[in-house]
């Protein structure tokens, strides 16, 4: 209930205190209070009732002419650094962000799956899992080729997914550069959504970091205790890559949604000062992992030492976990 009056106070805070404005405020407040009480009487929770009252409030600019405040609205909307957004646009922007996060995370998972197939098949070709595949004691090149072919298919699929991210996102690029001017009810709804999402984001990030560290720890234990069991070590490497793919999914889905809310609210990395020079880990994830794949392939093809080059993955995984933990920790929660 208090939320309704503080909402109303906020809306009217910058308006001149003329008789007409005061009357409008008290009339609107009366209607909102009546509606709130009715909703409560019908069994809605405080939160639900406040949410509905505020979303059905409307737009003060409708009253601009009546209240003699039209000048202020024109001034605000003609400011160059700001863009306005409709409820439907904000909603579809959030939806598009969720979809983009799935596509990016899926693309990264696809690339990592390609890497897994190269590692697995090159080990398989050397007879680690089944000595029968060896040809006169030599590695069976057909399996190496199959692994590499799978890698290229996966990378092609990932590229397809990354391109899909760009489709339909042009119209939202403006949110990257300009400040968003929200109506008070929009601000309320989006803040609420962001606050509801925050605990989930925290769980996703910590789970992701823990998973990567566990994967690395498992690999270390396996390689120390079973130094000569190459098949086991190889499996642990593949397991680590699967874990990395899952963690990336968690990081990206969580952080992209969070920064979409921040963009709309002009907070976090999207305050006026930070908008121009921002570095968010979600932006660096695709180039980071692409670079790792390129480095991994170059090193492996040049040296031919496929059984050693996998070492890149645990290092890359820990490094990524570390960087994202630092980025997360050094981004203060404004309020």
């Amino acid at each position: 209930m208090d939320a309704i009056f503080s909402y109303l106070d906020n809306m009217f805070a910058h308006l001149p205190k003329t008789e007409e404005v005061k009357r409008a405020k008290s009339e609107l407040g009366q209607m909102m209070e009546d509606k709130y009480n009715q909703l409560r009487a019908e069994g809605r929770s405080d939160n639900e009732a406040v949410g509905q009252v505020i979303s059905e409030f409307g737009n003060l600019s409708e009253l601009a002419a009546e209240l003699g405040i039209s000048n202020q609205y024109q001034q605000a909307s003609s400011d160059d650094n700001f863009v306005t957004v409709t409820d439907a646009e904000a909603e579809s922007f959030i939806e598009k962000t969720k979809k983009s996060a799935r596509l990016i995370a899926g693309g990264i998972a696809s690339v990592l799956f390609g890497v897994i197939s190269v590692i697995f098949f090159s080990g398989y070709a050397e007879g680690l899992f089944n000595p029968a595949v060896l040809l006169d004691g030599e590695p069976n090149k057909r399996f190496v080729a199959a692994g590499i072919a799978l890698l290229f298919i996966c990378v092609a699929f990932a590229v397809y997914l990354f391109v899909m991210v760009g489709i339909g996102s042009e119209k939202y690029e403006i949110f990257e550069k300009k400040m968003v001017k929200l109506e008070p009810h929009q601000k309320f709804v989006i803040q609420e959504a962001r606050e509801n999402h925050r605990p989930l984001l925290m769980r996703k990030i910590s789970l992701g970091v823990v998973l990567i560290l566990l994967g690395v720890a498992a690999l270390s234990v396996v390689s120390i205790l079973n130094e000569n069991n190459e098949a086991l070590i190889l499996s642990a490497v593949c397991g680590l890559l699967v874990v990395i793919a899952i963690s990336m999914w968690l990081f990206i889905s969580g952080s992209m949604l969070q920064s979409a809310y921040d963009k709309l609210l002009n907070e976090g990395d999207y305050t006026l000062e930070r908008r121009k020079s921002q570095s968010v880990m979600q932006r660096w994830a695709p180039p980071y992992w692409t670079l790792m794949v390129v480095g991994y392939l170059a090193w492996s093809f040049i040296t031919g030492a496929w059984h050693k080059t996998w070492i890149i993955w645990p290092i890359a995984g820990v490094l990524f976990g570390l960087i994202s933990a630092i980025v997360q920790a050094s981004t203060p929660n404004k309020e």
Partner: peptide, 8 residues
Amino acid sequence: MKETTLYS
């Protein structure tokens, strides 16, 4: 009807 529409 939104409150602002009604009041207006």
